[in-house]
């Protein structure tokens, strides 16, 4: 009987110990101060505010000069290959947003003067959603979207 009690006591104290430690580290996560990385944009919860914070506008003009290459059905939402290419002249940046992710802005690629509008990467998707590619050129925003069905979400939780 006494040994049983001791075991329960030990278990309890171990659990609270671990809890205290994780809460401590969670609060003290260091935030690197990066000039270029827009915290407001990446923490925006909808596409419009993400775009306003990132590019200064959320005024999108639909364009057929942007192509998104992505699977129609992604079996694993943790790894969805996405390629965005554009033939718009003077493209300055390409942004990839996932409408139904908790935080829609996935990536923003700032292109150099000689860089072609053609980037590929792999993203995570929480659930079936529209993937939006936004190209900034000459102060205007051009966009196109593509629906990607997700079988298993990849954002954890």
């Amino acid at each position: 009987m006494t040994s049983m009690k001791r075991r329960i006591f030990l278990k309890g104290s171990l659990a609270t110990g671990a809890l205290g430690a994780t809460i401590g580290t969670g609060l003290l996560t260091p935030r690197a101060a990066l000039a270029a990385w827009s915290k407001e944009a990446f923490e925006s919860k909808d596409i419009n505010s993400a775009l306003s914070n990132l590019l200064g506008s959320s005024d999108l003009a639909a364009s057929d000069k942007i192509k998104i290459k992505a699977p129609d059905i992604a079996e694993n939402g943790a790894v969805v290959p996405i390629s965005v290419s554009t033939t718009i002249a003077g493209a300055e940046s390409i942004s990839i947003l996932v409408e139904k992710n908790q935080l829609p802005l996935a990536a923003n690629f700032v292109l150099g003067a000689n860089t072609l509008g053609d980037v590929s990467t792999r993203i995570k998707m929480g659930k079936t959603s529209s993937v939006v590619a936004v190209v900034k050129a000459g102060g205007k925003l051009h966009s196109t979207g593509k629906e990607v069905k997700v079988t298993i979400g990849g954002c954890g939780g």
Binding site: A36, W37, S38, F42, A78, V79, V80, P81, V98, N101, L103, L105, A106, A107, N108, F109, V110, L111, G112, N114, T115, L116, D118, V119, S120, T121, R122, I123, K124, M125, G154, C155
Partner: peptide, 28 residues
């Protein structure tokens, strides 16, 4: 960078997959 001049700056969120892959092209 290409010979010291920047050709690509990518700003990422946690929505980029584990072990990220990036591919792009530039003239020259």
């Amino acid at each position: 960078t290409h010979n010291g001049s920047t050709v690509m700056t990518a700003n990422w969120s946690p929505a980029i997959s584990k072990n990220p892959y990036l591919s792009f092209k530039f003239k020259g």
